[in-house]
Design a binder for these strands. Structure first.
Lengths: 197, 197
DNA sequence: TCAATGAATTTAACACTGTTAACTACTATT
DNA sequence: AATAGTAGTTAACAGTGTTAAATTCATTGA
C-alpha cells in the first residue's frame, strides 16, 4: 500500500502548492489578481485540477482563512503555556495578533475580507475562533471576575481595538511608518489591559 | 443656451443614476455583484455609456468613496458649528461616524475596501479626508494642547478605535445585535474622550 | 501479448467580467 | 437635401469561475 501512500503524499503536496501559490500571488499583486488559472499555471497544471482539491474558489479562500485562525489559535495556546500572569498573557496575545497581521498580511486580509480579498463563507463559526475567544475571555475573567456579559463586552472591545489599529496601520502605512504605528499599538493595548484592573 | 443646460442637467441625472444604481446593487447583493452591465441595464443604457461618465469601474468606486468622505466632512462641519465644547464635539463626531457606517454601509465599505468592495485608488490623499483630520486634531488639541506628534497619535488612536468597533460590529452582527454593539461603541468612545483630559 | 478498465489530466465550452473599436441612427446646420 | 456631428448600439477581446466531454496513459486480466 506504499503506492497509495506516496500518491496521498504528493496529493497533499499539490494541495499545499495551491494554497501557497494563492497566497503568493495575493502577497505580490493583491487578492483581486488571484485567479484559478494563474494558480494552475504556477503549479504546472490545468485549471480544472484545482477543483479536484477545492470545490470552488470560495472554499479555497475559506481554507486559507481557517488555516490563519488555526495558526493564531496555536500561538494563543503557546502563550497560555508560556505565561501565567493574566496581564502578561493578554499583552503577549495582543502582540501576536500584530505580528501575524504584518508577517502574513494576505492571510489576515482573507480572514477579515480586506482589500480585495472576499470569501462569502461567514467569518465566524469556526471552532478555532470560538476557542480563541474562550481563551481571551477566560484570561480577562481571571483578573477581573465579572458577569459573562461584562467579559464578553471587554473581549469585543479588545478585539475591536486590536483589529482597528492593525487595519488603520495598514491603510496609513504610506503616511505613517509601521514602526510608529506599532508603538501606538503596544501603548494602547498596554493601557487597555492595565485599565482592566 | 437652454438646450445645453437641459442636456447637462440630464447628463448629471444619469451620472447620479449610475452612482445610485451601483450603491443599490451593492446594498442588496454586495459589492462583488456590482458589474458595469448590471448598472447599464438598470439605467436602460448599454454598457459603454457608463464609460462616458466614468473612465473605469475603479474611478466610479473612487467617486463613491470621495462622496462618502465629502458627506462625512460636511457632517463634521455641521457639528463643529453646532457645539463649542471640544468633548461634545468629538463625541458627536464619533456618533456621526457610527450613524454613517450603518446607514450607508455600501459607501463605508468602498471607503475602506471592505467585504468585496475594492478600489485600487489610494484611500488617503483626498482633501476632504485631510480636512476631517484637521478638524479632529484641532478639537483634540483645544482641550489638551500637546505636541503635534502627540495629537497625531491620539487622532490615529481615536480613528482606529472608531473604525475597529464599527467593522467588528458589522462582522459580528449575527452573533451580537448591533444595538448592543452601539452601546459599547458609545461607551468606549466616551471613555476615550474623557481620558483625554 | 492484447484488450479493457480505470484514473489522471486536458481541451472545450458556457456565462459572465471590464473595456474598447467600429458601426448605426438620428439631429442640427449649411 | 447633403453633410457633420453626436448619442447610442453592437461586436469583439481578453480575462474570470466552473463544468462536461474528450483524451491520454498506466495497470490489470485473459
Amino acid at each position: 500500500m506504499e503506492v497509495l501512500e506516496r500518491k496521498q503524499r504528493t496529493r497533499e503536496q499539490t494541495r499545499q502548492g495551491i494554497v501557497f501559490t494563492a497566497k503568493d500571488i495575493a502577497r505580490r499583486e493583491g487578492w483581486q489578481a488571484v485567479s484559478i488559472r494563474k494558480i494552475a499555471d504556477a503549479i504546472d497544471y490545468s485549471a480544472p485540477i484545482v477543483y479536484e482539491y477545492f470545490d470552488s474558489k470560495d472554499i479555497l479562500l475559506h481554507e486559507i482563512r481557517a488555516e490563519g485562525f488555526r495558526f493564531l489559535r496555536e500561538e494563543y495556546n503557546r502563550i497560555m503555556k508560556l505565561y501565567r500572569d493574566p496581564e502578561k498573557r493578554l499583552y503577549e496575545i495582543s502582540l501576536i495578533q500584530w505580528k501575524f497581521a504584518f508577517e502574513q498580511p494576505e492571510t489576515y486580509q482573507v480572514m477579515y475580507n480586506l482589500n480585495g480579498a472576499f470569501c462569502q463563507v461567514s467569518i465566524c463559526g469556526t471552532l478555532d475562533m470560538e476557542e480563541m475567544a474562550n481563551l481571551v475571555r477566560e484570561t480577562i475573567f481571571s483578573f477581573i471576575p465579572k458577569s459573562k456579559e461584562s467579559i464578553q463586552k471587554l473581549y469585543f472591545e479588545w478585539w475591536s481595538i486590536s483589529h482597528g489599529i492593525i487595519t488603520m496601520s495598514m491603510i496609513l502605512k504610506d503616511q505613517q511608518p509601521i514602526e510608529q504605528s506599532e508603538i501606538i499599538y503596544r501603548d494602547t493595548l498596554r493601557r487597555f489591559i492595565r485599565n482592566l484592573r
